[in-house]
Simulated scan of single mutants.
Amino acid sequence: MTEGHPDWLLVRQGAAPLIVSIPHAGTDLSEFEPQFVDPWLARKDADWRLDELYDFVETLDATLVRTTLSRSIIDVNRDPSGASLYPGQATTELCPTITFDGEPLYRPGEAPDEAGASDRLRLAFEPYHNALHAEIVRLREHFPRVALFDAHSIRSRIPRLFEGELPVFNLGTNSGASCSPALREAVGAALAASGRSSIVDGRFKGGWITRHYGEPSEGVEALQLELACRAYMAEPERPAPDNWPQPIDAARANVTRATIRKILEILLEGLRK
Rank of each mutant, 00 (worst) to 15 (best):
P127S: 14
A182R: 13
E33S: 01
R184Y: 05
V168P: 00
D150W: 03
Y128E: 09
R12L: 08
S197Y: 04
P247R: 11
G164I: 01
D101M: 07
L139Q: 08
A117T: 11
A190M: 02
D47V: 05
E141H: 13
R71I: 04
P247D: 13
P241Y: 06
A83P: 00
G206P: 06
L271Y: 07
D242Q: 15
L223E: 04
G207M: 08
A253E: 08
V137T: 15
P112N: 10
A193R: 12
A253D: 03
T68C: 02
F169K: 03
F36D: 02
P17H: 12
P87M: 14
S217P: 00
E226V: 05
D45F: 05
I266K: 13
G26I: 10
A193S: 11
T92F: 13
L271P: 02
L271F: 10
E218I: 00
I158N: 03
Y54K: 05
R140M: 13
H142N: 11
P236R: 05
E31N: 01
L60G: 09
L64M: 14
P236T: 04
S197H: 01
G206K: 07
R66K: 10
L148D: 05
P104S: 06
Q13P: 05
V146K: 04
R196P: 00
A111K: 05
P17I: 11
V76H: 06
A192R: 03
L10E: 14
R122V: 07
E33C: 02
P181C: 13
I158V: 15
E218M: 14
K44I: 09
L271K: 08
P167C: 10
R43N: 12
E93W: 03
E126G: 00
S84N: 12
Y106N: 01
C229Y: 02
S81H: 13
W208Y: 15
G14L: 14
N174E: 13
I154W: 03
R160N: 06
E165A: 12
I199N: 00
E163M: 05
T68I: 02
F100Y: 14
P167G: 09
L139K: 08
R238S: 14
F32V: 00
